[in-house]
Simulated scan of single mutants.
Amino acid sequence: MDHEDDAADALRRMAGLATPMALRVAATLGLPDRLLGDGASVERLAAELDAAPIALDLLLAHLATLGVVERTPTGYRTSAYGEHLRLDAGNGLTDLLRLDTAGGRAELAFVELAHSVSTGRAAYPRRYGQDFWADLAEHPHLRESFDRQMTHRFREQLPRIVAGVDWSRFSSVVDVGGGQGSLLAAILTAHPGVRGHLVDLEPTAADARRTFTAQGLDDRARVTAGSFFDPLPAGADAYLLFDILHDWDDEHAHRIMSRCAEAAHPAGRVLVVEAVAGLRADSESDLAMLVIFGGRERGLDEFRALGSAHGLLLDGVTELTDQRCLLEFRLSADG
């Protein structure tokens, strides 16, 4: 095979959908958990799953080619490699891959990528009839999986995010769209002089209350159930937007920044933590933001313009982790 054939074969493999879908269906069916130990026969597994035996065998054969399962004299069993797809593996993969979770369902919107490229809009509503956030509101199991995914997403980076910012400068921090409260709880634990206020929609807000109670922070942490498109608790020293703005198009991102600017006191700060194009963003994530949300990973000039429209000046940029930067905005004197 010559170089041109090698290149064509590599491109074909990158474009193929069989492998990524096989892995997602395997995770959705729970095959890595069902095939532990000595494994199981195709017939028994098909009966348990109410699946077509021949079709299930075809799926398992491809998973064996990938090294996810191993053939046994009587059927298949999960390999050591495939155990990374178990529910209890602790790596968050199941919430990203299963077709009945928010992450797995959302990525199927990539089949409508051409629509997003043509229009600049999210493909998710085209595939599912409503946007991602409406889907989460309507289906509690999707919201629950999304909250887990978001908590797991930055778990390993949490110590660096807490240590990489002098949070003690602020007597009060409002975590805008703060999810289940893991980040704010870590900040408050590390800095006993700081008080926190988290804003998110119910029932995520209820989860945050439980997080703060479990960590003994009820005396310094408040929770308000609400949207960041509505007025925010006023007068705090800092308003934190962690992985928020890239989920939204420009119109909605401006609305969020406007709420932060109007709530902050004159010496207050708006802290944006997320990937920044050209610094800590990757092209795959950029496409995902477009397809799922109609958003994108913005560059520094875009962030400057976004803040400036609301009297906010970009005052500093810190590369916190290999995935995220801190952008610190202050109110301009004539804002």
Rank of each mutant, 00 (worst) to 15 (best):
L188M: 13
D175E: 06
L183Y: 11
A163I: 12
M150G: 06
S172V: 07
G164A: 12
D218F: 04
V173D: 06
G177H: 04
D219H: 13
V174M: 00
R155S: 14
V194S: 09
R153G: 15
F228T: 02
G178D: 07
V223W: 00
F146P: 04
L184T: 03
R222I: 00
G177N: 06
L198W: 00
A221V: 01
V194Y: 07
D166M: 09
F212N: 00
A205D: 02
L183M: 15
H191G: 09
A221G: 04
A205T: 01
A221H: 03
T224G: 04
V173R: 04
R153N: 13
T211L: 01
P203K: 06
R209P: 01
S168P: 10
V223T: 03
Q157W: 14
L198G: 01
T224Y: 03
R169K: 12
S227L: 05
S172G: 10
P203Y: 08
V223R: 00
P231E: 09
V199E: 02
A185R: 05
G177K: 05
I161R: 15
R160L: 15
D230I: 04
T151L: 11
P159Y: 12
Q157N: 15
L158A: 13
A214H: 03
H197T: 03
D166A: 14
G177T: 03
V173A: 07
V165S: 08
G181N: 08
R209G: 02
T189A: 15
G177W: 02
R169Y: 11
R220D: 06
S227C: 06
L201P: 02
L217N: 05
F229G: 07
V165F: 08
V162Y: 08
L198D: 01
D230Q: 08
G181R: 04
A221S: 05
A185W: 05
G193V: 09
A186F: 10
G164W: 08
G226D: 02
A163V: 12
D200S: 03
D147M: 11
H152S: 11
V162R: 10
D200Y: 00
G178P: 07
G181C: 06
R160C: 12
A185F: 05
D219A: 14
Q157P: 12
V162S: 09
G193N: 11
V223Q: 00
Q215R: 13
L184D: 03
P159I: 13
S168E: 14
G178Y: 06
R160V: 14
